[in-house]
Simulated assay, not measured.
Amino acid sequence: MFVRIVKMGFQPEKINEFLTNFEDNKAHIRAFEGCEFLELYRDKDNPNIFFTYSYWNTETDLENYRQSDLFKRIWSKTKPLFNTKPEAWSVDKLHSLK
């Protein structure tokens, strides 16, 4: 299992549009084959910055999602809302403490 972290910065007046799009699609993303976990975070110091954390069984599962109609539909609505280039990392989870 690995983790995908995406950092996104939005135009302040477009944040509600982003949040509505996320709300409308979060269950579909989480239900996508291979997605085991999905969370959305907002930066406390800069409210225009958001992060998604998602856990995927394999890199192929993530790539299948990124090539899917679902992703293309979500991304086409999200991309015009940015005020900075998004950043993404795929990382291996080494430890998790509860």
Rank of each mutant, 00 (worst) to 15 (best):
F37Y: 13
R42T: 12
E13H: 15
E33P: 00
F10C: 12
T58I: 05
K26F: 04
E59T: 13
H28C: 02
F82V: 07
Y55I: 13
T52F: 11
S54V: 08
G34K: 01
Y53I: 14
L81H: 08
M8S: 10
F32C: 04
T20A: 14
S76G: 02
F22H: 10
T60H: 06
R30L: 15
H95I: 11
T84K: 14
Y41C: 07
N21S: 13
L40Q: 03
K44D: 06
F10V: 09
N64R: 15
I29T: 01
F50G: 03
F37C: 02
N21G: 01
L19T: 03
E17R: 12
E33S: 14
T60E: 15
I49L: 15
P12I: 08
Y41R: 05
W75S: 13
L40G: 05
S90R: 08
F32Q: 03
N16L: 08
A31N: 12
M1E: 09
A88R: 10
Q67L: 14
E13T: 09
L62Q: 12
P80W: 07
S90L: 11
N16P: 04
E63I: 09
E36R: 13
W89L: 15
R4T: 02
D45R: 11
K44R: 12
F18T: 04
V6S: 11
E17Q: 14
E59P: 03
R66A: 13
L40E: 08
C35Y: 07
L94Q: 10
T52Q: 05
